[in-house]
Design a protein around this nucleic acid. Structure first.
Lengths: 111, 111
DNA sequence: TGAACAATCAACCAAAAGGTTGAATATGCG
DNA sequence: CGCATATTCAACCTTTTGGTTGATTGTTCA
């Protein structure tokens, strides 16, 4: 698994990692705070953060004891460009957005 | 690994499968013809096609002996829209976006 | 200094992913 | 019918993934 697209897509394939990305949408966070809401160990979250960092989806900066995690949304661009190569749809398509909402939201509760 | 986005992103994470999708961009293809340029066995390609089908990225229709594979770009749309959400630096409505992600950000205070 | 905290490392484990080969199941056709 | 073709199934193997626990490394601060 060496190509950038492999790394980005497989990073996005895990729901824990997507949740972390969504959390970082709100604000930068320390590793411990990222881990806090999850039921898995800190070490497991630390590994997820390494994977997200290698994919370029986040960056990590250590200040003192604390390592801050920051979303890097630009990394999604290559994957997004690849998908737009399939070109049958607009990159931001509100109709599709709404259809997606209607279809997927009912499942959101059954985590 | 049950949720739609898990399945779509992990289907996209494999370079063989992305190549297959690109091939199908040109035209529908029979399983044997999809497999021909690859160095792996037909059975391996058949498994990849099952994964792409379960992700909704292709459909397969059997006519006679031949099973035709057809690109279904609508499944890419959901993933593309998901990614576009991260490109917008100030999400218009974060709550709606989180629902859109079809996840619930775990919150230890409530659980 | 030394205790508490932040984060990673190392070793390990179970399950899933991705491949193989050989047999099986349809289907088409001379 | 009988054989070739198209595809999948079943069993197996190796590597990767995602998790665990306990030890370890830095850092802060009373």
């Amino acid at each position: 698994m060496n190509e950038p697209l492999d790394i980005v897509f497989s990073a996005l394939a895990d729901p824990t990692r997507r949740t972390i990305l969504a959390m970082l949408l709100e604000d930068d966070m320390a590793v411990t705070d990222v881990a806090e809401p999850f039921e898995m160990s800190l070490a497991a979250i630390s590994k997820h953060l390494v994977i997200l960092t290698k994919a370029g989806l986040i960056s990590q900066e250590k200040r003192g004891r604390v390592k801050w995690c920051k979303l890097e949304p630009d990394a999604l661009r290559s994957a997004s460009v690849w998908m737009q190569g399939f070109g049958q749809f607009e990159p931001v398509n509100l109709d599709a957005f709404e259809r997606f909402l209607e279809i997927e939201i009912p499942n959101a509760e059954e985590t």
